[in-house]
Design a protein around this nucleic acid. Structure first.
Length: 418
RNA sequence: CGGGGCGUAGUAUACCGGUAGUACAUCUGCUUUGGGAGCAGUCAGACCGAGUUCGAUUCUCGGCGCCCCGACCA
């Protein structure tokens, strides 16, 4: 993509009403636009990152048998009344509205009720199970206080998955597969090392639920970890009983600030019973379906990556989620050869399947370098009179600042093989 | 929801009870051309409403919006 074609512009300064690092950098670099408190639009660069993250999650969900769907944003009141969660006293983040024809609708802050209800159309026998569905959905939550940039908003994108199983054993099997899938997701986006499967408060059916918590200074949660034993405990369940059941003592644990990037829940059969989602077992008896829910905050994860991976010059995207793999920075020249060379390299890389943002703008070198650092694409390739004379391109790794001088073929080779 | 702070140009900031200045950005011209360049010119602003006042961007009240701390976060 030619950068001259991008309608977004970079800014030297962050708007004064943004304090969080993720929002400051994402706005300055032109990834997002703030519409109102806690509500952000995703611009061309930002959308690319969102899609990269979604694709990684999609691949891992598909691997464990997930089928992608998309539910609706408008939801029926009656479903939430069945589970006693329509009331604003019970759920305080509802956005609601009235239908002109009469009656109320809710705006989806979560989707387990509608999905479970929908499944009544498709689940009738134990032979139909298990089923795992997932979606990438914009959740609408009337949060009293948005904060932390794109990490805690009123509107955000979440991957939510739901499993429908014949009983606890089958459910547990998928539940564990989901933990492994999530670990792969966080590894791939580059935060696996700092992400912990954390014991948190459970529902009515299990002692614990599991959260995926990533260490970050600006995190909202506090957890206690022991890296050697691979144990992490949310402070909300840190007590003698928990410590005993996990066979660990308090002084073996380190306190860290984290952000919750994923969570998985065991619903048991309560929700199925409330919503009358039953299947017939091999004896012809009606049995409630065993359900679980599995979430990853896509846009929150994006914000977390910026929080963790940036320096004083800008964002430093991990390769897997960067909007482009290469930032081709063409230094303006009197000689038309530089433009010709840049175009040629752009075509070669693009044909090799490398995603390139080509800074072809009529701007000075300093501005281009500063923008390049801010936008944070992993590899910068400079084309200028200098590199033309040297016969090799100057390649700079954003994360380390290391510079390599490479020919076209060496460059293609390196980018293909990481 | 409790507490605190803030609304001035596209952005960031000054000053002031007597109609607002600067920087960057925009646009024009010339110079410059490997780390946000220089000179000259250009465009552009007081959140909304009520009150006090001869006069309000400034003071008072109300509304709206934004930020922060806490609470909440299935």
């Amino acid at each position: 993509m030619k950068q001259s074609h991008l309608f977004t512009k970079t800014r030297k300064e962050a708007p004064k009403d943004e304090v969080s690092k993720n929002a400051q950098l994402l706005i300055r670099a032109g990834y997002v636009h703030k519409e109102m408190a806690g509500v952000y639009a995703y611009l061309p660069l930002g959308l690319r990152v969102v899609e990269k993250i979604k694709q990684i999650v999609r691949e891992e969900m598909d691997k464990i048998g997930g089928q992608e769907i998309i539910m609706t944003s408008l939801q029926r009141k009656e479903l939430w009344e069945k589970t006693k969660r329509w009331s604003d006293e019970v759920v305080d983040v509802w956005f609601k509205s009235e239908l002109k024809a009469g009656g109320e609708v809710g705006f989806g802050w979560s989707h387990e009720e509608p999905i479970a209800d929908m499944m009544k159309n498709y689940v009738s026998s134990y032979k139909d199970l298990p089923i795992v569905v997932y979606q990438f959905q914009t959740k609408l939550r009337n949060e009293l206080r948005a904060k932390s940039g794109i990490m805690r908003g009123k509107e955000f994108v979440m991957k939510d998955a739901y499993s429908f199983s014949v009983g606890e054993a089958d459910h547990t099997k998928f539940y564990n597969a989901s933990i492994e899938a999530y670990k792969r997701v966080f590894d791939r986006v580059g935060v696996g090392h700092d992400t912990f499967v954390t014991f948190a408060s459970g529902g009515a059916f299990t002692q614990f639920s599991h959260e995926f918590q990533t260490i970050v200074e600006t995190g909202e949660d506090t957890i206690y970890i022991n890296r050697e034993k691979g144990i992490a405990i949310n402070e909300e369940v840190l007590n003698d009983e928990t410590l005993a059941s996990l066979n660990i003592t308090r002084d073996e644990l380190e306190e860290v600030k984290t952000a919750e990037v994923g969570n998985i829940f065991n619903f048991g059969t309560q929700k199925s019973e409330d919503l009358e989602l039953y299947y017939k077992n091999d004896k012809g008896e009606n049995v409630p379906v065993w359900m679980g829910s599995y979430g990853i905050g896509i846009t929150r994860l994006m914000g977390l990556l910026v929080e963790k991976m940036s320096d004083d010059k800008g964002i430093v995207w991990p390769k897997e989620v960067a909007p482009f793999q290469v930032h081709l920075v063409e230094i303006k020249s009197e000689s038309p050869d530089v433009r010709v060379e840049a175009l040629e390299l752009y075509n070669t890389l693009t044909e090799a399947g490398v995603e390139v943002l080509w800074d072809d703008r009529d701007a000075r070198a300093g501005e281009k370098f500063a923008d390049s650092d801010l936008i944070g694409i992993p590899t910068r390739v400079v084309v200028s009179e200098k590199t033309l004379a040297a016969g090799k391109f100057e390649c700079v790794e954003r994360s380390t600042g290391r510079t390599f001088n490479l020919s076209t073929s060496e460059l293609v080779d390196q980018l293909r093989h990481g």
